[in-house]
Amino acid sequence: MKEFMMIFIGADYEELGLSPEKLQEQMGKWFSWGDKMQEQGILKGGAALVAKGKRVSGADRVESDGPFVESKELVGGYYTVAAHSFEEVMKIAEDYPDYDLGGSVEIREIIKFDK
């Protein structure tokens, strides 16, 4: 079994100015997606990220304040799941709730290092 990371890009709720009703609706979809993966026992981990951040770069360790990309390119969070193939993960990713809000899912395989 391999592990994959689904990276959620775009669909910043704050930026979109969603109504309380819509927020609750989206949340409900995240719930049922999470529960579904949980039931299948494939969900390994995940987190949501705050939009603001810091960046340290270059030999001089220059510090700058984020966000660094436009909100539609912003990484909002990720899930890691166990699966056999990309095809399987793409199937899982079909339930991502935010496609309609302009969001997308990037799928990357996690490299397993030998212990």
């Binding site: 309380p20 609750q24 999470g34 949980q38 969900l43 390994k44 995940g46």
Partner: peptide
């Protein structure tokens, strides 16, 4: 991730709470 929890929320909770 946590164990499965019961994700039932009252309909329109957010909207009503807003008011």
């Amino acid at each position: 991730m946590t164990s499965k929890n019961n994700h039932k929320i009252v309909d329109h909770l957010f909207r009503h709470q807003f008011g």
